[in-house]
């Protein structure tokens, strides 16, 4: 199967960008690996599926080295979002989102909260909060 292209993203304003692929007929074709300049691993951070991410400031304008996908993440992250939610909203593979998040972390544009490591799931407050939250549904 061929990696899916993203409709929402290809409707973004198209600025000339070295990391994008232009195709005469189809318009810009943005493949996951192209979006990340072929990178498979983020420069920083593990980005678990439930790592929570939030933008530090508003969506930056004219920041060098940011593609439309980076900006889309900044927009979504005006609210606290998990990595999984970002991939769902952007309809991009997890690996791609991780690379893009690494870039934003490098630039100091996002902050994040890693989940509790498995080894220290012994905090009773966590369990109580989850039980209360479920009861309240």
């Amino acid at each position: 199967m061929i990696p899916p292209e993203d409709d929402a993203l290809s409707q973004e304003p198209q600025e000339p960008h070295g990391e994008r692929w232009l195709d005469d007929q189809a318009g810009p074709m943005v493949r996951p690996y192209v979006m990340t300049s072929g990178r498979l691993e983020p420069t920083r951070g593990d980005f678990d599926l439930i790592t929570l991410v939030v933008a530090i400031g508003p969506e930056p304008e004219g920041e060098i080295g940011l593609g439309p996908e980076h900006l889309a993440i900044m927009r979504l992250c005006q609210q606290v979002m998990s990595v999984a939610e970002l991939t769902g909203h952007l309809d991009l593979p997890v690996a791609t989102v991780r690379v893009l998040l690494g870039d934003l972390l490098d630039k100091g544009l996002i902050t994040m909260q890693e989940p509790q490591p498995e080894a220290d799931m012994h905090d009773i407050r966590l369990y109580k909060a989850v039980i209360d939250g479920l009861r309240a549904l």
């Binding site: 199967m1 599926l49 989850v130």
Partner: peptide, 21 residues
């Protein structure tokens, strides 16, 4: 060869600073 595998997930926001997925 590339293929995709999908997982469904949902979110429940809880008080006390926890979010359940």
């Amino acid at each position: 060869a590339t293929t995709t595998v999908a997982m469904d997930f949902g979110r429940i926001t809880m008080r006390d600073e926890y979010v359940l997925y």
